[in-house]
Design a binder for these strands. Structure first.
Lengths: 128, 128
DNA sequence: AAATTAATAGTAATGATTACTATTAATTAC
DNA sequence: GTAATTAATAGTAATCATTACTATTAATTT
């Protein structure tokens, strides 16, 4: 089914070996150093494939389209992985965790974004 | 400085009045019902403006480019709002909160995504 | 070594968003 | 109230990340 390719091996090796959370373009630039004519399409295809195989992950959060919220205050959301709908979650925002992370890392933490993922009620009951 | 326009008023009224977390395109479609020739550019411009004014918010999370991570297991991140770099955060994943939200909402919660935002050490010290 | 076909390179297409520009309309000056 | 000013708009073109397409290349199998 799958064949080995030096392109895919190199992409996996690089992403596994860096903590820079590179974009597809970053990976492409890096790859060109050892495989000068590697194409961007190959990078995209393999990143997606390696993700499907569970060897790497993607910090996507949110799909390609941005969504807006009439509530301007920070609050949490739930996104259904099947229908794509987004719901507000009625859970108090944990401000303590920002302080803890700030203490641990030395970063200045202004806020955090928390999104739950799974299946909404409709999508659980609909069998298909 | 700012002038009122029926387009902006209608957009704000709609986004404030729905819990559907609409995309720019959803807002545009809805607006066309009452202002048939409103342009998509106007919708985008006003959504951005209303966000800047703090009247609505955007569920962007992540910018336009997707980032990849050699660690395939769920973990938290910190994103610097100034330089854009993403760092891993060494904090145990809270599985209890998924259960609590599931109990509260009736949704099936598979996991959650948590991203801290603020200024990394470099960007705090660089004065500019 | 030849046959098969997955993977690639290179290019074109897509889709969300932003930029641009002439026109319209809200506000200000008279 | 009317004319002058200029912010906001409609409509279109441009941009940018990502995906699709296709002829060619190269792993793997026979």
């Amino acid at each position: 089914m799958f064949r080995e390719s030096k392109q895919r091996e190199a992409i996996l090796r690089f992403v596994k070996g860096t903590s820079s959370h590179p974009t597809a373009n970053h990976v492409h630039e890096e790859m060109r150093k050892e495989i000068p004519n590697i194409s961007l399409g190959t990078v995209y295809r393999n990143l997606k494939l390696l993700k499907r195989e569970g060897k790497i992950s993607e910090l996507d959060i949110a799909d390609s389209k941005s969504r807006f919220d009439g509530n301007p205050h920070n609050h949490y959301h739930f996104r259904c992985e099947r229908c794509g709908r987004v719901f507000d979650v009625d859970e108090p925002v944990n401000k303590e965790i920002d302080k803890r992370i700030a203490r641990k890392t030395g970063f200045k933490v202004s806020h955090h974004i928390l999104e739950f993922r799974g299946l909404c009620r409709d999508c659980q009951s609909s069998n298909e």
